[in-house]
Design a protein around this nucleic acid. Structure first.
Length: 486
RNA sequence: GACCCCAUCGUCUAGUUGGCCUAGGACACUGGCCUUUCACGCCGGCGACACGGGUUCGAAUCCCGUUGGGGUCGCCA
């Protein structure tokens, strides 16, 4: 089935720098990468930074670091260059606007001046009238294009929407499932160009995939329902569409789409608790995929060599932490003692990390041998809250408000760029203010939550050393623990 | 709610042109052996083809329906 002589395969991973490097990004990147290597094709990294509101400065580097850490590397991308750049969508706005003009000219798109408020009203009306799914009523489509252009040129803010046929169906072939058919009546006149002049995913994605010569779009299953829009866009532009491959979604234990509320989803979390990169990679590669025979532990090269879409299964795989740990154990065993020691040193037993710890424990140890006891929680992945059950309360605050509050604080911290002590403290104090809770009570909970101790070096410095991802995980577990307390 | 996708042990999966499946492996759980302890290792146990109709000599494998789960329905990707 797989033609290994096909050199024209070009695939891409297109993450959005809006947060932490997600395991789902790593998962999809891995399959794109394996397929590209198998076919002797190219794997491209493109940064989809078209959302100014959600853009996070520290995110892109975190994503590229995480992907490299996983062992997935790209042939073209913002850092390595290539013949199809630029590879940041934010640097391609002129291209999208130009293409939007073509659609406008051919009558496949129109300007829309409706405000977000108007749109919300329309959505409400649809709901009330039980119109499913709720859709834009296309009122601006009736406007004379010349008149619309005049208003836009005069500086009035507007978006550009694509025209979806009134009836008929849109079909496409998914490599893993066969033909998928969706009625045009289900599809809204999608916004292509936002009010700020940036493109939406749909436009940018199609234009870039075409311009970058992408042959196969390998992405997550959640995109299936918007694929008809993309198919239409290719048609409107007169381009050949790529092949579609929709991988199953990684799941929480309850089978819902994997999410940070129910699972650690940052690749950094797994790195920080001491999962070997090749173990995470191996684990991700048995999600929805089987190597063949009874092999579960295999190298990236082996996966590439035997790679075939035929080996993908479509039931959504649950991301099982236990099995990940077992996988990691297998990879640790495969190490020599020399390599194991290197792994420890590469992880946290190194000068750089010790230098962060040193000021925190310097005046808290009497002998060097006190180190292990004084820092145990800085190296472990989980802590036990049971010994503190009687300390997990705040005077005059209901238990429910406490655990919900902790979750809220975690969300506040999530919005930060980075995890610096100063910003952390400011966020925590703002939270106390907001809640009307005393810092000493909140900080006490934070301390127990992130260290598993009631005494520690300065809280926020300590949290910074433990790291954002582990702290977040611990705090969520603390909330869970309190929730379950009688 | 509408539309789309999916459906083998609790979990990851093998099973891919229907017969070699009284359904195999792995994680987890569990009984035992080994052992000065623990871990590893070894042997064993528990445990699934969602249900109902077809097609066929024969179905986990094909078709239809039902049920269940998931996803999407944003000027987010």
């Amino acid at each position: 089935m797989v033609d290994t002589t096909d050199r024209s395969v070009r695939v891409r991973i297109a993450p959005s720098p809006t947060g932490d490097p997600h395991v789902g990004t790593g998962y999809i990147a891995l399959f794109n990468y394996a397929f590209a290597r198998k076919m002797g094709g190219k794997f491209i990294l493109r940064i989809e930074d078209t959302d100014q509101a959600r853009y996070r400065a520290d995110s892109e580097a975190a994503i590229t670091d995480a992907l490299n850490w996983l062992g997935v590397t790209w042939d073209e991308g913002p850092d390595v260059g290539g013949d199809f750049g630029p590879y940041h969508q934010s640097k391609r706005t002129a291209i999208y606007q130009e293409h939007c003009e073509k659609l406008l000219a051919s009558g496949h798109a129109y300007r829309c001046f409706c405000s977000p408020e108007t749109l919300a009203e329309i959505r409400e009306e649809c709901k009330a009238a039980k119109i499913n799914p709720p859709m834009y009523d296309r009122r601006c489509k009736a406007m004379d294009p010349a008149e619309a252009k005049k208003r836009a040129d005069a500086g009035e803010e507007c978006v550009v929407r694509m025209v979806i046929p009134r009836d008929g169906t849109i079909k496409f072939e998914d490599k893993l499932r066969g033909e998928v058919e969706i009625s045009a009546s289900q599809i809204d006149d999608q916004v292509l160009l936002k009010g700020d002049g940036f493109p939406t995913y749909h436009l940018a994605n199609v234009v870039d995939d075409h311009l970058m010569g992408i042959s196969h779009v390998v992405r997550a299953e959640e995109w299936i329902s918007s694929t008809p829009k993309h198919v239409l866009l290719y048609r409107y532009f007169g381009w050949d569409a790529p092949e579609w491959v929709h991988m199953p979604l990684l799941r929480n234990n309850d089978k819902s789409k994997i999410s940070k509320r129910k699972n650690p989803v940052s690749i950094h979390y797994y790195r920080d608790i001491g999962i070997l990169p090749d173990a995470l990679r191996n684990f991700l590669s048995i999600m929805g995929y089987s190597f063949g025979g009874d092999r579960e532990v295999f190298g990236l090269d082996e996966m590439i060599e035997g790679f075939s879409w035929d080996r993908v299964s479509l039931g959504g795989p649950v991301f099982d932490q236990d099995k990940l740990r077992w996988m990691n154990e297998q990879h640790i065993r495969a190490l020599t003692n020399e390599e194991l020691v290197d792994a420890f040193m590469g992880w946290r037993y190194n000068r750089e990390h010790m230098l962060k710890i040193a000021p925190l424990i310097h005046k808290r140890i009497k002998t060097l041998s006190d180190f292990a006891g004084a820092t145990e929680y800085m190296f472990s992945s989980e802590v036990d809250y049971a010994p503190f059950a009687d300390k997990l309360s705040i005077p005059d605050v209901a238990k429910k408000d406490i655990w919900k509050g902790i979750l809220e604080l975690v969300d506040d911290v999530d919005k930060l760029d980075g995890f610096e002590p100063e910003a952390l403290e400011a966020t925590a104090r703002a939270f106390c203010e907001k809640k009307g809770w005393k810092p000493k009570h909140v900080f006490g909970l934070l301390r127990i939550g992130s260290t598993g101790r009631k005494a520690s070096p300065p809280l926020f410095e300590t949290m910074a050393v433990i790291g954002k991802d582990i702290c977040r995980r611990r705090l969520r577990e603390l909330a869970e623990f309190i929730k379950k307390m009688k």
